[in-house]
Nucleic acid binder design. Structure first.
Length: 271
DNA sequence: AGGTTGACCTGGACGC
DNA sequence: TGCGTCCAGGTCAACC
């Protein structure tokens, strides 16, 4: 479900709601799937820790945990396809598929809910884990962006989704940025001209910024930490618009499969 | 080593 | 109502 703009929205909301609060207790469901770290490690890292901040790295939510004013560990949440991280009151009804609950000193709770169980929870030492991760699309310079895709024998759509290259781009924003750049998703990354690269770089950053401003896309159940939907789904130009007229030229939007992922594009506007 | 595929899950939409 | 099929915002391990 969540790509960079949705994870950014959840992180900001969580930060606003819980920064400075202290985790008093942690409950983990009695099965291992969502846990990338041993349950005992997660409990030990969270219990008694103060939340120094919440931020986003690629598609990960990182909760900085402090003891005696020093950040000593990071709680890392990946939402997978269907994960939600919600700040609730203690007495609020428990959603089905709630896998973890952190109870806060303020009386509220952070709940991790994830029907499909593709999401993951882990804890690491500060600074670890992300050294080898992909570059942030909103921070990377054009030269490096361009160099990253040069010589790759794979469709540009697949390269955009490769989290070892860029971190945070998923299926919606890959399709939307390729539409804005006028590039066919099946074009090989290696065959893009530098003008193509420039348009893709600008389009990707533009669509991500607009989506963050709209608090993300809610195509099925995505909600932020307060349970509110985003609105960027109303601004999608190709994603899940198969058969509908292109907003620029009226040609029917096509759906194909690239790397096992649904891919939407305009056969007239994208070359 | 880089690239591709299928497995991992639940649930909603749709057709019969 | 029910049953089958297809689809869904993402990764990974296992293959070539």
């Amino acid at each position: 479900m969540p790509e960079l703009p949705e994870v950014e929205t959840v992180s900001r909301g969580l930060h606003r709601l819980v920064v400075g609060d202290t985790i008093e207790a942690i409950w983990l469901a009695d099965y291992p799937e969502p846990l990338k770290s041993p349950a005992a490690d997660i409990k030990a890292a969270l219990r008694g820790a103060r939340i120094a901040g919440v931020r986003r790295v690629a598609k990960h939510i990182v909760v900085d945990l402090a003891r005696r004013n020093k950040i000593v560990s990071q709680w890392i949440v990946h939402l997978g396809m269907s994960g939600r991280l919600l700040v609730t009151r203690e007495e609020d009804d428990l959603a089905k598929h709630t896998h973890a609950i952190a109870s806060l000193k303020s009386g509220r709770q952070i709940r991790f809910v994830d029907p499909r169980r593709f999401g993951r929870l882990s804890v690491t030492a500060p600074g670890q884990e992300f050294a080898a991760a992909g570059k942030e699309p909103l921070l990377i310079k054009f030269d490096e962006f361009s160099r990253m895709f040069r010589g790759r024998s794979t469709p540009i759509k697949s390269a955009l989704l490769n989290q070892k290259l860029l971190g945070g781009v998923g299926n919606i924003y890959a399709d939307e940025s390729l539409f804005r750049a006028g590039i066919r998703p099946r074009r090989w990354a290696a065959n893009l001209t530098s003008a193509n690269m420039r348009r893709l770089y600008d389009s990707l950053r533009e669509v991500l910024r607009e989506a963050i401003a709209a608090k993300g896309s809610s195509v099925s159940n995505y909600v932020n930490a307060s349970g509110e939907s985003g609105s960027f789904q109303f601004h999608h130009r190709v994603y899940r618009r198969t058969g509908q007229p292109c907003l620029r030229c009226k040609t029917a939007i096509k759906r194909i499969v690239i790397g096992g992922r649904s891919t939407h594009y305009c056969p007239h506007c994208q070359k």
